[in-house]
């Protein structure tokens, strides 16, 4: 399969640990990155860390970021139901260098529009950290729900993870239009929706994601490649937007 033959080092905004067993997941993640020319990736913790073992998950991420400096960057997690402890968890994680907050409403058991998430967002505002949320789950993680948060917190950049995949594709562009601080992450969603969003809101609001291990760079890079974006737009989507948003350098 011929992917990424344009000699550009990709910055990937959507990889996740497969499990809390670091060594089980990281080598295959790094292999995938090598195979497809991904210079560095923003990585979110595994499900168990996202749902309950927040502190351990953040420590694991800090450890990885330290060991693979410039290669892996990490997102902090805290289940908003842990209240004040959740705020402390992400403050600690930000202090140790994690570059944003990862929300997963389906795993964490809350709707994006519920007030329990607000203290975490206020913390992100104080620390100037972007918020990535998985989207596409009915009732709890819909594009318009994330757009509502983006309107409430215009200072925070929000990332619409997996672009509302699957069947919220029709809400993606209208939601992006509601808030200029809302960005789109490309994994899982079909090419036509990503294409359409780039046409309407511009390539500067779109971030490449592999969605690994749910999806794969083999699928996701080819998907973007075949859109025939111009060179400048391709550079933005595959690399520059992410570096700027997360404040990272490979």
């Amino acid at each position: 399969m011929k992917v990424n033959n344009w000699h550009m080092k990709i910055v990937d905004s959507a990889m996740r640990l497969d499990s809390m067993e670091t060594d089980g997941a990281v080598p295959s993640m790094l292999d995938e990155m090598d195979r497809f020319g991904i210079a560095c990736a923003v990585v979110a913790p595994a499900d168990a860390a996202v749902a309950v073992h927040n502190v351990a998950g953040n420590l694991q991420m800090v450890d990885l970021v330290t060991r693979y400096r410039g290669r892996l960057f990490g997102l902090a997690v805290a289940n908003p139901w842990f209240g004040r402890d959740a705020v402390h968890a992400i403050e600690g994680a930000f202090a140790r260098g994690l570059c944003g907050l990862f929300l997963h409403p389906r795993r964490q058991g809350f709707r994006l529009t519920e007030s329990i998430v607000q203290p975490l967002l206020e913390t992100c505002r104080r620390h100037r950290k972007p918020v990535y949320s998985s989207t596409g789950t009915p009732v709890c993680a819909e594009p318009f729900q994330l757009a509502e948060l983006a309107r409430q917190f215009p200072e925070i950049p929000f990332v619409m993870g997996h672009a509302g995949y699957s069947d919220f594709w029709y809400d993606v562009v209208p939601a992006l239009k509601q808030a200029s601080n809302l960005m789109l992450e490309t994994s899982c969603q079909v090419a036509g929706v990503i294409d359409g969003a780039i046409n309407v809101v511009g390539a500067e609001r779109v971030l490449y994601g592999s969605g690994w291990p749910r999806s794969s760079p083999a699928v996701e890079i080819q998907k973007i490649e075949r859109m025939n974006l111009g060179a400048a737009a391709l550079r933005r989507v595959m690399r520059e937007n992410a570096m700027k948003l997360w404040g990272i350098r490979p």
Binding site: M1, V190, A191, G192, D195, A218, Q222, K223, R226
Partner: peptide
């Protein structure tokens, strides 16, 4: 567009 090739990939 391009859904078949994505499905095969």
């Amino acid at each position: 567009s391009r859904v078949i090739e994505t499905a095969i990939a």
